[in-house]
Simulated scan of single mutants.
Amino acid sequence: MLRKPSKEGAAVAALFSPHSVWDEFPNAILIVDYSHQMVVYANPVAEVSLDLSSKLLEGMSLHDLFGHNPELFQMLDAIKTEEVASQRQDLILNSGPARADHDPINAHVVVGALNHPDLLLIEWFPLEQQLRSERDDRLVQQVEANKTLMRNLAHEIKNPLGGIRGAAQLLEYELPDKALHEYTQVIIKESDRLQSLVDRLLAPHRKAHIDDFLNIHEVLERVRSLVLAEFPSGLKIKRNYDISLPDLLGDKEALIQAVLNVVHNAAQALRSRIEQGDAEIELTTRVVRNVTINKQRYKLALDLHVIDNGPGIPDEIKDKIFFPLVSGKEGGSGLGLTLAQTYVQQNYGFIGCTSKPGTTDFQMQLPFRLKTEGK
């Protein structure tokens, strides 16, 4: 049941809207009226976390919101009865009648006193978010270290490689027996192949052209047409777009290549299902609010998912798929996902992946920025 806020509660609630300092907080915030056991204010992150609007939350009883949650209510009681400034612990925020169709939230919760006799603050962030942030930070550091290593290695290979190719050409010109040209051609062709590999290693380190706005769905449609041209039968690429998304400031060609690498990688993993005719890739776009990407906070970001129904990524390489020269398929160069990660990072974004047999989900997040940001 929803309770109507008291006149005092309504007056207090007015202090928190519409442009409260709490709105800028990166974690979910509820201000609660302890006497009436109800919510008087919810910030935008809390709205997203609870999947309820502030209009519904404000005036809602804590029991309707969180159901049977003795640990949370004990924390609230401790602030009032023991007169301590704050309480914090990891706990499960259960789903009450108002959230009966939602999963509980595994979170680190802080309850604190405010400068008002009846008001308390409840703040939380999902523990999965913390674990993901720590994992993403480690991955970024590892990718950066590997990029530096590969760039240096590529430069060391490039110079002697040109000498080898040139010497093979001179040798071919001097050889009297044309039958021996077969061997010099092997040297020349393999040198060219290595040169192409080196160029691919160096390519992402060139400066991105992030100077114009683009429609992400035009990028996805281009990728979709390219992949379906290569796999004309047996593969279905579903669109699940939010067409209301604003334009994105970014390097269009780099993002086409990044998404193409991810989608093409998924198609390669689906070869057996393509032969059976039931391979499927889903492209999903949504907007997310108040997210942290590469330690930078953004109010709005693109949340793009590339989901396939393939066999999943082998466990032994699951944590290394963005590293150079790591490939899950025979004959793969192991550069596609590395380059995708690099191109997305150049556009201030990030790629992550979750995988299990039957479902692999590559998630890209890219901030919606102004031209003046990041300069």
Rank of each mutant, 00 (worst) to 15 (best):
L302N: 12
H108G: 02
D23A: 12
N290H: 05
K236L: 13
E330I: 14
D247K: 00
R273H: 07
Q268E: 07
K7M: 10
M364W: 06
E253S: 13
A208V: 03
N261A: 01
W22V: 12
N27P: 04
G349M: 01
V326L: 11
E190Y: 01
L255T: 02
P232F: 08
D101H: 00
E330K: 14
A203M: 12
K238G: 06
R132V: 09
N106V: 02
T360P: 01
N146R: 07
I313Y: 03
T148R: 15
N294A: 10
D211Q: 08
L161N: 11
I31S: 01
D23I: 08
N43H: 03
L337R: 03
V326W: 07
H181S: 13
T292W: 06
Q37W: 10
D177C: 11
D101Y: 00
T148P: 11
V21F: 10
P232L: 09
L93I: 08
R222G: 08
G332Y: 10
R135V: 13
A10E: 15
G331K: 10
Y343A: 06
L245K: 03
A279H: 04
L15C: 13
E58Y: 14
R165S: 12
Y41H: 05
G352E: 04
V109M: 00
F323K: 09
E82P: 14
A229Q: 12
T285F: 00
H68G: 03
F213S: 00
E230L: 06
L52K: 08
G162C: 13
T184D: 07
I351Y: 03
F362H: 05
E280R: 04
L201K: 01
R138H: 10
G352I: 04
F350M: 06
E123Y: 06
R289I: 04
I164W: 06
L170P: 11
A100K: 07
F323V: 09
L91I: 15
P246I: 00
G334A: 09
A269G: 12
L56H: 10
F213C: 01
E282F: 09
E58G: 11
P246Q: 00
F125V: 12
S233K: 13
R369D: 08
R165F: 11
A258Y: 01
Q268V: 00
D90K: 15
I105G: 03
A167Y: 10
S196E: 08
M75W: 04
L175D: 14
L197S: 04
S133V: 11
R200T: 03
K158R: 15
K295E: 13
T359P: 05
G334K: 02
R286S: 04
D77P: 02
D64V: 11
V291Q: 07
V344L: 04
Y348V: 06
R88I: 13
R193T: 07
N309W: 01
G310M: 03
A46I: 02
E58N: 15
D315Y: 06
